[in-house]
Nucleic acid binder design. Structure first.
Length: 570
RNA sequence: CGGGGCAUAGCGCAGCUUGGUAGCGCGUCUGCUUUGGGAGCAGAAGGUCGGGGGUUCGAAUCCCUCUGCCCCGACCA
């Protein structure tokens, strides 16, 4: 590709509304342009990257025995009504009507459509197992699209759906997808981790997420240094602290704490530590009353764990201030577990605090030296909090680290949620009707571009992993418009590298060298070859890898060998 | 959904308080010079100041309204 003909605009300045480095660099490198909130055009440079990712995904999906198909992005409401999700899905589902007033949605996912295909096409156990996949545009009307293509409303996803006669076959199909995903992300050159995930409302039993590790990630994941335990923060279990309670100290008493409402304020006022405090969160109960969730002052509530407690209303809702006043008789900020007129769930760690500080259930008052079993009844403790860095691993081996990740893949054992509601059945070997069981497997194609940049950039720009770079080689002739030798040498090298199957971008613009270097660094092409008068005299080309600091001088054969070996690596 | 902010040339911004002929940098175009890390000089094009309404002799500027976009929050005991 000749850059003089490629419609590429790079930006020196950072667009004001781009916050993440990947978003900034994608705009600056001329990969994407925003059309509206959460909607992006993929310009030629960006699209090349997407296609590279798709290529790897296709190869590995095909290798794993999956079959590509393509479903409509617009789906009729009837199918969603059949599965029950027309009413469950909420405002994220973009719904609209056609000219006949029939209802449709723009597909955020395709379980209904594929299940409809399955029930029409798959009639016999002989057809099973089968795995269909597609690479397609989805739409989810996110509350708050942000971070460029990281959390867009329209995005490209690879979604796969497998159908099985029995659990054993599903297990095997799921494992095959796990292996394929691991290969895909490895080939793409991403540092990733697999974690246990919440299978959530979808039903199913097993579910794992693939996360690209990045500080800017929106998800929090947890892993152990003692074994291969890794989980989503939502899922990670916090163990009860090791026994060894200290003896309670002096009697519990009240202290005046005027206008002290937060744990931080309380701690600086009383000169104590949050881990010696107890915080009591009031949430709505299923029966219109309140439920109290008791945590240590330095811990965070895990909403998913809290929702599982009997009597707690789903979704978890913090109690309104006037409701708190009505039930407890004082305002939020001074709530404590002693003599609290509502059911209590006490976190393991909170139950282990001795001589704790807590709210007194009276305005401007707290209690100190509170003790379980003495000042209020001991009770069975439960797991309510998010794990923190350094907690023991729930497997008993090692301690946990908490890091940020970008979810780029998710695999699920769905079971029969869709196949039973939509009657997807086959005849088994005995001629009996069996309901299909399903797995589903997603990869966020567009998001991978941003995730890769978050992980691979420097102050000059993007540093593409070779497998997804828009071009393999950036060829930079210096002063080619003045030097026929340079131009001829560059042209010849360009042809030869193309003939080797390399994708070469030659910067044949009549621009100063600094401009060319800066643009090629920004775009992030892995290999750079400079052709200049001074090198030609010595019969060498200047080569620099995007990751290197200093260039090397190579003969034409050395250069070709080096590039050839890089081709086989990916 | 709640709170905050922004909207002026392709991009980044100033001008608005105190109403009086719309500016700067980058980018783009032309010419000359320059050519190994985002060049210099000279010139040029490009703006319904987000839309609508109002106040005024006069509105980018003041008022009302609508729209779009961005940020924060939805863990407060």
């Amino acid at each position: 590709m000749r850059l003089s003909r490629l419609p590429l605009n790079t930006l020196k300045e950072v667009p004001a509304d781009a916050e993440l480095i990947s978003h900034q660099l994608m705009l600056r490198a001329g990969m994407i342009r925003k059309l509206a909130s959460g909607l992006y055009t993929w310009l030629p440079m960006g699209l090349r990257v997407l296609r590279k990712i798709e290529q790897v995904v296709r190869e590995e999906m095909n290798r794993a025995g999956a079959f590509e198909l393509l479903m409509p992005s617009v789906q009729p409401a009837e199918l969603w009504q059949e599965s029950g999700r027309w009413s469950e899905y909420g405002p994220e589902l973009l719904r609209f009507k056609d000219r006949h007033q029939r209802e449709f949605c723009y597909g955020p996912t395709h379980e209904e459509v594929i299940t409809d295909i399955a029930r029409r096409e798959l009639k016999s156990y002989r057809h099973l197992p089968v795995n269909y996949y597609q690479i397609q545009t989805k739409f989810r009307d996110e509350i708050r699209p942000r971070y460029g293509v990281m959390r867009a409303r329209e995005f490209i996803m690879k979604d796969a759906y497998s159908f099985h006669l029995d659990q054993e076959s599903l297990d095997a199909g799921y494992q095959a997808m796990f292996d394929a995903y691991s290969k895909i992300f490895t080939r793409l050159g991403l540092r990733f981790r697999t974690v246990q995930a919440d299978s959530g409302a979808i039903g199913g039993n097993a579910s794992q997420e693939f996360h690209v590790l990045a500080d800017s990630g929106e998800d929090t994941i947890v892993f152990s240094n003692g074994d291969d335990y890794a989980a989503n923060l939502e899922m990670a279990e916090a163990l009860p602290p090791a026994a060894g309670k200290k003896k309670p100290g002096g009697d519990m008493r009240f202290v005046d704490t005027p206008d002290i409402r937060s744990i931080d304020e309380l701690c600086s006022f009383l000169d104590t530590d949050p881990s010696g405090c107890i915080k009591t969160l009031l949430v709505d109960a299923e029966d219109d009353g309140l439920v109290a969730l008791v945590l240590r002052g330095d811990h965070e509530l895990n909403a998913r764990k809290a929702e599982k407690m009997p009597g707690v209303r789903e979704p978890l809702t913090m109690a309104a201030a006037d409701k708190v006043k009505e039930v407890v008789g004082c305002e939020p900020g001074f709530i404590g577990p002693v003599d609290l007129p509502c059911p209590l769930f006490v976190d393991h760690s909170a139950a282990a605090v001795v001589d704790f500080v807590c709210g007194a259930n009276q305005k401007d008052q707290h209690r100190v030296n509170g003790n379980w079993g003495r000042d209020l009844p001991d009770c069975a403790s439960v797991d309510l909090r998010n794990v923190v860095d350094g907690d023991p691993s729930p497997t008993g081996k090692g301690t946990l680290s908490v890091v940020r990740g970008i979810e780029v893949g998710h695999i699920f054992k769905l079971g029969d949620k869709y196949s039973s509601s939509m009657n997807a059945q086959v005849l088994d070997a005995n001629g009996q009707t069996q309901t299909l069981i399903m797995g589903c497997y997603g990869i966020g194609i567009t998001r991978i571009t941003a995730a890769a940049i978050e992980q691979n950039h420097d102050r000059r720009g993007i540093v593409w992993p070779p497998a997804m770079a828009p071009f393999d080689v950036a060829l930079i002739p210096i002063n080619q418009h003045k030097s026929d030798r340079v131009r001829d040498a560059a042209d010849q090298l360009y042809e030869e590298l193309n003939a080797m199957g390399l994708q070469v971008l030659v910067d044949d613009r009549n621009a100063r060298p600094g401009v060319k270097f800066a643009d090629m660094d920004l775009i992030g092409i892995p290999h750079r070859v400079v052709v200049a008068e001074k090198g030609l005299d010595g019969g060498s080309f200047e080569y620099k890898n995007r990751r290197d600091d200093e260039p090397r001088h190579l003969s034409i054969d050395e250069l070709k060998d080096l590039l050839r070996s890089s081709q086989t690596e990916t």
